[in-house]
Each structure stands twice: as structure tokens, then as C-alpha cells.
Nucleic acid binder design. Structure first.
Lengths: 353, 353
DNA sequence: CTGTTAGCGCCTTCAG
DNA sequence: CTGAAGGCGCTAACAG
């Protein structure tokens, strides 16, 4: 059924070893021989047997990219950038490496995350890229630490993007994070500067790193301004989706009708919150300011255009991809990418401010 | 370095074959033996060597999902649904199949598409799922037909979701499509029923199946209404993104200032078009109606909420996933999923209509 | 139910 | 620069 290396060798009148060498391209072969082999490959429609190759070489060209939610553009953009950085990788020696960059959707589930890592480990993946926040459950973190170490010991490169290492001082993984704390702090500071004093927060899931960092940044700004009263009351939690934003804003508005601003866990949540605000007959930003986080492409298209914090997603993804294939050498320590406040039309001074 | 099946066998005091059998679970093994083996696996932290396994068995558990743009929620939703349908697959005999469902981002590039297929073919993938429209270039279609046949001949299941088969009567691939034509036709009919007579269209890329079908549906509705004049002039083309919608709407509005409605290639394009309309000082839907296609989750959050055509993305993805792993038997012929008109607030009768 | 025996297709020293 | 040979780790018949 399948044509093998040996068939090609026979056809080209050379040994299997020679065919292997021209295919890999990492070993000198006389040009005429090369041509002959290539032609034979053409004629026979030969395709390398990956499993056999990986078995013999004890490595594979698979690179796994794990994301929490593939339907969320945040992850899509990051993963897309990483994937194309990996695909266009020039390779170590100039020879194009045909890496198979694939993305795996964990749905944010820890079990799923571990399962995918094991599957990737089975395949002897060349690298694994974990994108986005992690669950802060001790048991899971322990399991992750162990698994990542196993992976690293097995020779697969591990890079984390947008999440901290599950355990300190683990030199085997390279880490790339966003300054979620700083970004959130700056955003809330902006609102405070406009004159807001009652700022609600629709935060993300309690047990997730990213959500915690953003909320902490928000609160740090509040503390900076001496506002410590009612903070807990003006915070609600929920998943990173639109309904959470809607429900969260409703809850906040009923708990605290005097609210003049709402910061959301991300742009999508902000959209939901904005809808809730509008449905209560309040204007944005006239009555209530609303702000997001991430600066997804759609943020500029909301009405009014969303004030948010821009995260360098494309840059981060590309960089993570390059780190994964070794095109870029790992930094000494964790690398933190800056977040930038983007003020648009959804925030303004409070009514009567 | 790596612990192998033989190590586990030695530890458990059984033969390698037995270990293999308990791991695969598809062969009777005495319970006590089973336990012993499982314990040895635990103790040794053994993980199966995928390449070796695939080589020996001549199959792998890899399932590739190819998408045109991973940052586009249309593909994200579809891919996510497929992936979870594959992951939760109960397997043929009740034993859980640990399929590794991965998504590959082609960026819409034909070369990339072919490259990924070859890579997947190398891995002897169990199935390949092609999601979204295809390029209608004869050379590429020929290449795809050949490649897909190779894949199918090699034993990998091929399913197309949202795209027609590259060549007719190819029984080796199973096809699942959306009724883009019917949906577009219904949408334009809705606009016509409201009284619109000058309807612009910001269509998708000319050479893509989906774009062609939607445009054809739109025009069919126009013909139904006896409106054939100026159709070409009221059509512009562009990629499936927001800037294309913005630019397209600007162009249409300057070509034909009397336009009272715009239908877009998809929801994202519609967002851009809406922004352009607003930026010209026109109101939606008061002066110009705007409609999208797909009904992405965000469509309901635009202001005004977008009239669009709903495509059953989750259902389609899940079904495609099940077809890919063989949980659902392939239909006799191509399966076409219905599209449903969703009327919201972005369409209304034309001014003075 | 369990052990034995051959490969699966390729890569990689080692000679020539 | 090219060929020969051994083995990567696992599975799949066969026996028993």
C-alpha cells in the first residue's frame, strides 16, 4: 500500500541511507544523486512515515499550543501568531524545519490540560506552548509542575505565554507574561483621574492567575487613591464571557446604584456589561463609564468605542513561537510584556463630576 | 532515559505484550494482572511512545482540523465544537479513544493547506477535518483532490465542513455544508420586503466558495424581485475582515449615494461597514440598513443589534467531529445545514419607504 | 488468558 | 560522498 523509503531508494538506484539524507538535508549529498532521489520521490508520491521517523530519531516535529478557549479571539490571535512564527521558522541551520504547529483547546479544564500534555508527551513533541492564564489550585499546580518537568526532561521545550510558571525557579521552562497588574492599575487610575469614585469591577474567575492579577491591579489603584471602602461589594466574579458581563453589571448596579464606572475582566465581558447598562436606560459614558481589557480588534467597533488596555498579542504569540522552536534564545528570567492604556469613547467624567 | 514498555513488563513480572494489552484495553487480561501492570506504570511514570506505537499499529490517534483563520470566531467556534466532540468520543467499542484533536491554521493559504495535509499524512492521521470555504483555483483544486484521495487511500478519514468537495462524486470524503446560498437569498429578500431597492453588497474574496455562494444567493433574491440593474456596480469585494467592511461600505456609498442597505460577507465585515456608515453621518437603520452573516455571539451586542443569518456552527462542528471519529455514520450524500434569518435592529424600511 | 516471535520504516553510526 | 547493518519501542499474529 504505502511506498517506503526503500522503494524510493530502489527507484533512484541508491541506498535508503542516501534517500534519508537528501530528505533531511542535513548531510552532504552529491547534487546529481540528490536530483535523482528527488525525482524518484516525485514519481512515487512518497511521503515520509512520521512515526517511523520519530521513532528512529527519537524526536518529532510536533509543536503543541494549548489554549483555554479557541473561540475567544484573545487566544485565537495569540495562537495564530505563534503558529505562523513556528511555521515560517527558518530553522537552526537555514534548512526549513517543517514543524507541525497545532493548537489544542483545553476549555480551561485542568484535566483536559493534563491530558493534552500527556498526549503531546506520547508524541515526543518538540515543544509545548501553554497560552493564557492558569488555574491556581495547589493540586493542579503540583501536577502541572511534575508534568512540565517530565516534558522538559524528555527533551521537549516548554514555554508559557501569559501565565506564570507553576512553581518558582524552574529553569526548564521559559516564561512570557503580560503586565496585567500594571495595565489594570493604569486603567483604574484613568477612571479615578476622570473623577470616578464608585467603580464596579466585573472580574474573571476567582481561581485564575490572570483574573487575580487584573483585579489586584485595579485594587492597587483604588488604594493609591485612598479608596478602600466597599471594594468587595463593588466586585463580582464570573467567567470570561458576555453573559457574565451582563449579569455582573446588573448585579453591581443593583447593589450600588450610584456606580459611575465599571471595569471588566476583558473586552468581551465589557460588551456584556455595556449591554446591561444600556438596558437599564443608562447612557455610556454619560451616566456610566465602561472599560475592557485586551483591546481585541472589535473593541474599536463597539458603540461607543471601548476604552481598554492593549496587550501586545501578536508580538507575544510570535515571540512565544520563536522561543518554542529555538529561533530566539530564552531570556534569563521571566519576560513581562507591557500593557498600554487605550482611551476611547466609553469612559468620561462621571455625571456632575 | 525513557522508561519503556519492557521496563514496565519487567517490573510487573509479565511480558511486554501483556502490558500493551492492558494499556490498549481492547483485549482480555486477568484483573489481578491488570492491576499489577497498572501499578508498575504508575510507579515508573511510564508514558507510551506514540511514534513507536503508531509505527507498529500503522495508525495514529491524531485528528487534524484545518481552519482558514483561527483568530476568527467563526472558525474558533466550529473547531472548538469539533474538538470537544472528538475528545469526548466514547469510541467504537465503549473504550475511550484518546484522540489527539488538533487545529491547524492555514491562514487561507492554499500552499499552507497542502503543507498541513502532507504533515498530517506523514503522521498517518486518523482523520482530517477541513473547515470553511475553499479556494476555487483549478490547479489548487486538482492538487487538493489528489491529496485528499491519497489521505483517504492511506486510511485517514476525510471530512469537509462548510466547503464542497473539490471534485464531484468523490465517495471517499464526507461533506457537510451550510446553506449559504439560501441564507443570503432570504436575507436580501427580507430587505426587499422592507422596501429597499438599492442594496449594496460587500462580498468576500472572489475566488472562494463561500463568498461566491452568498453573493449568488443575494443576487438570486434580486433577480426574484426583478432588480437586475446596477448589480455589479453595487458589489465590492474584499477579505473577511473589518477593514474590508469599512472600505467596502465607503466605496459603495460613494458609487451610489442613494444606497439604503448594505449586506456584508459576514458579521465582522458588517461591523466595519456599519462603522463606515456611521462615520459618514448616516444612521443605522434610519438611513441605511446593515446586515451580516453567521450570527456570531457578538452580533447581538453591536449597536444596533445586527440583523444576520444564523449558521448552526456548534451543531455543525460537533457533527463534523463525530463524523471524523466515526461516531456518526456518514450520510449518503452531501449534508446541507439550514441557515436561518435573524432579524434584529440594524435593518428597517428605507427612509421615506 | 499469557508469552514468543517477527517485523513496522527509518535513522545513524561505522566502514569504504 | 555513499552503502551496510543494527536497533528505536511497540504491536500483532501465533502458539501455548
Amino acid at each position: 500500500m504505502a511506498v517506503t523509503l526503500a522503494d524510493v531508494a530502489a527507484r533512484a538506484g541508491v541506498s535508503p541511507a542516501t534517500v534519508s539524507r537528501v530528505l533531511k538535508g542535513n548531510y552532504p549529498v552529491a547534487e546529481p544523486t540528490r536530483q535523482r532521489v528527488l525525482r524518484a520521490v516525485e514519481e512515487l508520491d512518497y511521503v515520509l512515515n512520521g512515526p517511523a521517523s520519530s521513532l528512529a530519531a527519537a524526536t518529532s516535529d510536533l509543536v503543541g499550543i494549548l489554549v483555554n478557549d479557541i473561540a475567544d479571539p484573545f487566544f485565537g490571535i495569540l495562537a495564530g501568531a505563534a503558529q505562523s512564527a513556528i511555521g515560517t521558522s527558518p530553522g537552526a541551520g537555514g534548512a526549513r524545519t517543517e514543524k507541525l504547529a497545532v493548537v489544542c483547546n483545553t476549555g480551561g479544564s485542568p484535566e483536559c490540560e493534563l491530558t493534552y500534555l500527556t498526549l503531546l508527551q506520547r508524541q515526543r513533541a518538540a515543544a509545548v506552548l501553554l497560552v493564557g492564564g492558569a488555574l491556581e489550585d495547589p493540586a493542579h499546580q503540583r501536577a502541572m509542575t511534575a508534568k512540565l518537568r517530565q516534558l522538559a526532561d524528555g527533551g521537549t521545550r516548554v514555554v508559557l505565554c501569559g501565565r506564570p510558571a507553576p512553581s518558582r525557579d524552574d529553569a526548564s521552562v521559559t516564561v512570557l507574561t503580560f503586565d496585567d497588574h500594571g495595565g489594570a492599575r493604569e486603567l483604574t487610575a484613568h477612571l479615578l483621574a476622570l473623577g470616578h469614585r464608585r467603580i464596579g469591577c466585573v472580574a474573571g474567575p476567582e481561581e485564575r492567575t490572570v483574573a487575580r492579577h487584573r483585579l489586584a491591579g485595579h485594587r492597587a489603584a483604588l488604594v493609591d487613591a485612598g479608596l478602600t471602602e466597599g471594594v468587595e461589594r463593588m466586585t463580582v466574579r464570573g467567567p470570561y464571557d458576555r453573559p457574565a458581563g451582563y449579569a455582573g453589571a446588573c448585579e453591581l448596579l443593583s447593589r450600588e446604584p450610584e456606580l459611575t464606572a465599571i471595569v471588566a475582566a476583558n473586552d468581551t465581558v465589557a460588551l456584556g456589561a455595556a449591554a446591561a447598562v444600556r438596558d437599564r436606560g443608562l447612557r455610556i459614558p454619560g451616566d456610566v463609564s465602561v472599560a475592557g481589557f485586551c483591546d481585541l480588534p472589535s473593541a474599536v467597533d463597539t458603540v461607543p468605542a471601548l476604552t481598554t488596555v492593549r496587550l501586545p498579542l501578536v508580538d507575544a504569540g510570535a515571540r512565544a513561537g520563536r522561543l518554542a522552536v529555538g529561533d530566539e534564545s530564552a531570556p534569563a528570567g521571566p519576560l513581562e510584556l507591557a500593557a498600554e492604556l487605550v482611551v476611547r469613547d466609553s469612559t468620561a467624567p462621571p455625571p456632575g463630576g
